[in-house]
Amino acid sequence: MIRDFTLNDVLYLVAAMRWTLALTAIAFIGGGIVGLSVALLRVSAMAPLRWIGTVYVHVVQGTPLLAWLFVFFFGLSIVGVEVSPWIAAAAAYSIYAGAFLGEIWRGCLQAIPKTQWEAGASLGLGIGAQLRCIIIPQAVRLGIPPTVGFLVQLIKNTSLAAVIGFVELTREGQLTTAVTFRPFTVYLTVAALYFALCFPLTQVSRRLERRLHVAR
């Protein structure tokens, strides 16, 4: 039965945004942990560790996110392991975001001159303290714009989770279209809602960058 596109539908779409946000948060936190590990592996002084990091990044960047979602949701259930959509999404998105964030952060770490590590080492700081007190604080400032850029991509890519049953913003839009036959209005609304999520982020990123720059 076809019905009109009403304010109620808009509210449903807005409500569906919470899944978009939840997925983004999980992906960003999981991906952040994986990504930091990958970045550290890739700048390690030990060659085998660097190789592990490199292989990981190449494999993940060379495969579609959709494939990882399928592997964790359908693949594992075929071999008898039942996983909830949340677990599957958390695993797939962490793996995916980890590779990209890892690469972004590796670049930032490597942009800090070797002499900064040396200056720290010469003062008796260990590797951990060099990273924590000298390298990472400088790398973070460089890392904010590309990280936020990736976060914006991530928000949009959470729509892929619809294939394993999440009714997030895009999927809710599809469902609304199916009952209202108003694709133009519905998807325009969906697009506007994505924009409302992403635009402030890029603004915050700019402000943060400027503030960190002033405070060095």
């Binding site: 002499t115 200056a119 000298i134 060095r216």
Partner: peptide, 10 residues
């Protein structure tokens, strides 16, 4: 060092 190598963020 020749190039000082102070920590610029501190």
């Amino acid at each position: 060092f020749q190039s000082f190598n102070l920590f610029p963020h501190l």
